[in-house]
Nucleic acid binder design. Structure first.
Length: 959
RNA sequence: GCGGGAGUCGCCCAGCCUGGUCAAAGGCGUAGGGCUUAGGACCCUAUCUCUUAGGAGUUCGUGGGUUCAAAUCCCACCUCCCGCACCA
């Protein structure tokens, strides 16, 4: 039967909401506080977002069925710059974004017009996302919803940031950022044309002395100062004479402009043409050696200072330029100088000789200095030398050091001796701001940082991580690593939505810093939303009292004008729900949000309120590739729900991958899930919970198997191995059920409705956290009163597991399988089948061997000797083949089955087969099956097969 | 470079933690059959190689090792993917 997902889902959604099932207040039960990283509302959510929330919802629903008082709240993170950027683009009538909003996100045109206001964007997508979450059936307590620009939230963040400052964890310093000179604003990826991230590198400026000027050259390789033999300038460039912090420099115009933003005082003094510098000499700093300035056209005014130091031994450009120059027409005097130049080799690298640059130029078949392949050659030499090279003896105190280590040391040494300076430069130029201006690097002074580099802080966070449950376990090392390399992090910016720094109103608390302890806020947001408290009254004393148990109630009450009772109630609410029992998020938040979450908790809260668990999930791929706007493979969640139903989407997301794996989502799998659920749904109509009569062998077996399933599924869900759990519920159990049906049909039984009813009730209860709507419907159809979401999670009961029945059904399956195999190989049509079970003597030997093996003895020779030493089993020497095969039989079995066999010595193969095999045989092979023991006196054994019988491996004769 | 992860029977993907139920689940694909007016959907059977008696052989990136026994544990190597920040 086709399921009307929409109708069923709406029906149960309404019931949950009417019953206020997910509105959680403190009570006498044990609590679980489950949170997910709240969404940033700059677009509708897609299937990928759905994964994290779905996992958390399953988690919440599971704990609810286990009897916990579960709080699962949600907020919306308005803080940040991307929305601001979007608003600007809408205002500028940017075609791309308007097209995306209209066609990709389906925003009505009238609404788009309002999007010039950033808050309109946020609140539009906020409602869109919320609607999707409700449609997905997430069991969220919406009374606690908030946004991060609510006035009350601002108070909360002010409190948080103030505490951090008091603890001296917020410090001030300077920091380079991408910068738009026109907007006077930092730029990030969202603010640039084409969404490029401004990427910059640090060049070392080596200060060469030229008369009373300094000619700086920019390099990434300060160590090569020991190999410099000349300088390159472009004769066509007009250089600027400038004063930089009381020094006179000669650099390109572009370089001078860049330096204006780098916290340097620049005044312009004059100009000099590149050609005028040719042939002049400069002094190498520290060595006081003179080298000549030569012309080269590969030198660009936009890069570095517009002057390049030449290290022909290690830099392919320099080597090639020197060759080009030697070939060209020169004044005799210059020519003499050029010919006197010999490269100085300063790095030894395995695989290269004296002149790596020369080798690379030859290898890449470089034509001249304008050859584009030179970039590649440079890259190769550089990376090889950097990671593998060592400095030679002509590098003074640095001799013998690996280049990778020497680089920073030499940089420090040069700067300390005033031989060098720093130049920051964009590497992916030109980066243009959305306003059209070309961006630069700016050093921001007075920037505020969270000092995540603080060793004590790190230690505390590590302690917290050590005591936390991290799921899956594999991700733990990654957290430890992140804690290790974390340094200062800017925690405020100058534009965007968010809370202003209380002590410096020019700055707004940055989005990854105002989202670290907000879980605590959920415990008070309920009182804000129902107007019990208002923001005007709130002071940091209030938060101190609620969250840190500091201060005096009377005093707080008089300051805030909130009654003692209410303050006490709020405090109790917090104390009941805190700490966070489980925090869910995607793995992309591991190196930032999740780690900051822990760091800030340990900084602000006492140990008793440190978080308990983190659950991390992988991302979602669409048909094997990343979802992206440009690929056009983003499926909006609400559209998917409308097309397929929420439950099939939930199931498809969960079944497609284990927690940390990337889930490859495709619509075919959703169809498969729908069919699976439909067939389960159909069964529910015909089943009745009537009393069952006497249980037959297969009934006991399927009940045992059901218990095993309960145990497996429960353990899997506890570890958030939801794929495995769901698989066991839906598919894994299917093969057991079909064996059961085979047995039942063979016997022509029609009294199994109650058994199946019982089994399916258990399955549907366990399915309920995964597919909550349809599970309710099935539960109702099965005739249960009450809701499945409020029923108890099935509990494993050892009493209902009958090991002997598991063993005997396995045995029966084995016999059927053997017969099938024989028929397959021989291709015969059976007329008659005869089974011979082993005699008592063989059983005695079998158990002897079984016990030996259990004790670890697997050596055939030793076992044989021991058997012969015992008068009871001595006779086995006539049948050594039996011993060998028996050892093999036993070794190929799981330990569990071996133990069962030890415990069930009395198992009577012949009786069991005689009772259970005949009907099955008739059904499966359409023949009569006769069963003998090989020791029976009136045995029918024309082919003398009986003697081959072994315990649990009867002999078979097919005619 | 540093750190993390992965390589499984045509494809996707389980299993590895805790060695034996593993020629290895499930899905897709393919072949045959059933159902259907037909198509789809669904159900059944088969799907490494050999085999006229339930068997044997060769497989889990490559090469070693430990063990009675290795996809699973240990060592080395090869290949691929992800993160390395001021951005949500």
């Amino acid at each position: 039967m086709k399921i009307n997902w929409k109708e069923i889902e709406a029906k149960w959604r309404t019931k949950w909401s009417e019953n206020k099932d997910f509105e959680t207040d403190p009570n006498e039960k044990q609590k679980k506080f489950i949170t997910v990283a709240y969404p940033y509302p700059n677009s509708p959510q897609h299937i990928g977002h759905g994964r994290t929330y779905t996992l958390a919802d399953v988690h919440a629903r599971f704990y609810r069925m286990l009897g916990f008082n579960v709080l699962f709240p949600m907020g919306f993170h308005y803080t940040g710059t991307p929305i601001l950027g979007m608003a600007k683009r809408v205002e500028a009538n940017d075609k791309e974004i308007i097209n995306n909003l209209k066609n990709l996100y389906g925003v009505p045109e009238d609404t788009i017009k309002e999007f010039v206001e950033p808050i309109k964007i946020a609140s539009y997508f906020h409602q869109e996302i919320k609607a999707g979450m409700i449609e997905m059936g997430y069991s969220i307590d919406w009374r606690r919803e908030f946004t991060t620009i609510d006035p009350m939230y601002a108070k909360f963040i002010e409190w948080q940031i103030k505490i951090l400052k008091e603890k001296k964890l917020i410090i001030q310093g300077s920091h380079p950022v991408g910068w738009c000179p026109k907007d006077q604003n930092p730029v990030s990826q969202h603010d640039t044309l084409g969404d490029v991230e401004p990427d910059f590198t640090e060049y070392i400026l080596i200060k060469f002395k030229f008369e009373n000027y300094i000619i700086p050259t920019a390099t990434l390789r300060p160590e090569t100062i020991f190999g410099v033999v000349n300088l390159w300038v472009n004769p066509e460039i007009i250089y600027k004479k400038i004063t930089v912090n009381n020094e006179k420099w000669i650099v390109s115009k572009e370089c001078a402009y860049k330096m204006e933003f780098l916290d340097k005082k620049i005044t312009y003094e004059g100009e000099i043409k590149g050609s005028e510098l040719i042939g002049k000499t400069v002094t190498v700093p520290h060595r006081n050696e003179s080298i000549v300035i030569l012309p080269a056209n590969f030198v660009e005014s936009e890069t570095g200072t517009g002057v390049v130091m030449s290290v022909p031994s290690h830099a392919p450009f320099d080597y090639q330029a020197l060759i080009d120059l030697k070939k060209s027409q020169m004044e005799p005097e210059l020519s003499k100088k050029v010919n006197a130049i010999t490269p100085i080799s300063i790095i030894v690298t395995e695989g290269y000789g004296e002149n790596p640059a020369k080798e690379a130029v030859e290898k890449f078949k470089i034509v001249d200095q304008n050859d584009p392949k030179l970039e590649e050659a440079t890259k190769e030499v550089y990376s090889k030398e950097f990671y593998e090279g060592k400095l030679k003896s002509n590098t003074e105190q640095f001799a013998g050091i690996k280049v990778a280590f020497a680089k920073d040391t030499i940089k420090e040494w040069l700067i300390k001796n005033k031989h060098a300076d720093i130049l920051l430069e964009l590497t992916n130029t030109p980066v243009r701001c959305r306003c059209g201006a070309e961006c630069v690097v700016k050093v921001l002074n007075n920037q505020w940082f969270l000092n995540y580099g603080d060793m004590n802080w790190k230690e505390k966070a590590t302690k917290c991580f050590d005591s936390m449950n991290i799921l899956p376990q594999e991700i733990r090392t990654e957290f430890n690593y992140v804690i290790g390399w974390l340094r200062e992090r800017a925690c405020a910016r100058q534009h965007g939505l968010g809370t202003k720094l209380p002590w410096d109103k020019d700055w707004i608390v940055e989005s990854l810093s105002d989202s670290v302890i907000y879980m605590a806020y959920y415990t008070i947001s309920k009182f804000i939303n129902n107007k019990t408290i208002v923001s005007d009254n709130l002071t940091s004393e209030f938060f101190d009292y609620i969250f840190l148990d500091k201060g005096d109630l009377e005093k707080i009450s008089s300051i805030t004008k909130i009654s003692n009772n209410i303050i006490t109630e709020i405090k109790k609410e917090f104390q009941y729900f805190y700490p966070v029992d489980s925090r869910h998020s995607g793995r992309d938040l591991v190196p930032n949000h999740l780690t900051f979450f822990v760091l800030n908790h340990v900084a602000i809260f006492p140990e008793s309120n440190w978080p308990r668990e983190i659950v991390v999930n992988g991302s979602v791929l669409m048909n094997g590739s990343k979802m992206s706007k440009s690929m056009g493979n983003i499926i909006p969640l609400r559209k998917a729900i409308a097309d397929y139903g929420a439950d099939p989407i939930r199931l498809a997301i969960i079944i497609s991958a284990e927690l940390l794996q990337d889930a490859d989502f495709n619509m075919e799998s959703v169809g498969g899930i729908q069919n699976k659920i439909e067939s389960l749904f159909d069964q529910c109509f015909s089943l009745k919970a009537e009393k069952s009569d006497v249980l037959e062998a297969e009934d006991i077996w399927i009940k045992s198997k059901t218990q095993k399933m309960i145990s497996q599924v429960t353990i899997a869900v506890e570890k958030m191995r939801l794929r495995e759990a769901l698989h066991d519920i839906l598919f894994g159990f299917e093969s057991d059920l079909s064996w059961y049906m085979k047995r039942v049909t063979a016997k022509n039984r029609n009294n199994i409705s109650s058994i199946i009813h019982e089994v399916n009730s258990i399955r549907i209860a366990m399915l309920s956290p995964f597919a909550p709507h349809i599970a309710e419907e099935m539960w109702e159809k099965l005739g249960h009163s009450g809701m499945v979401s409020k029923s108890a999670w099935p509990i494993f009961s050892q009493i209902n597991v009958d090991p002997i029945s598991i063993q005997s059904e396995e045995y029966l399956k084995g016999v059927i399988e053997d017969i099938t195999k024989i028929l397959k190989v021989t291709k015969m049509t059976p007329q008659k089948i005869t089974i011979y079970t082993a005699d008592l003597f063989k059983f005695k030997v079998y158990h002897f061997i079984l016990e030996k093996i259990t004790k670890g003895q697997t050596n055939m020779g030793i076992i044989m000797k021991e058997l012969m030493a015992n008068p009871d089993t001595e006779e086995i020497k006539k049948n050594p083949d039996f011993v060998q095969k028996t050892i093999k039989d036993i070794l190929s079995e799981p330990t569990e089955i071996r133990n069962t066999k030890i415990e069930s010595k009395k198992f009577n193969e012949k009786n069991f087969l005689a009772n259970e095999l005949a009907e099955l045989g008739r059904k499966e092979f359409s023949v009569e099956i006769q069963v003998f023991s090989e020791s029976d006196s009136e045995i029918y054994d024309p082919k003398e097969k009986a003697r081959h019988a072994r315990p649990f491996k009867p002999a078979i004769l097919i005619e």
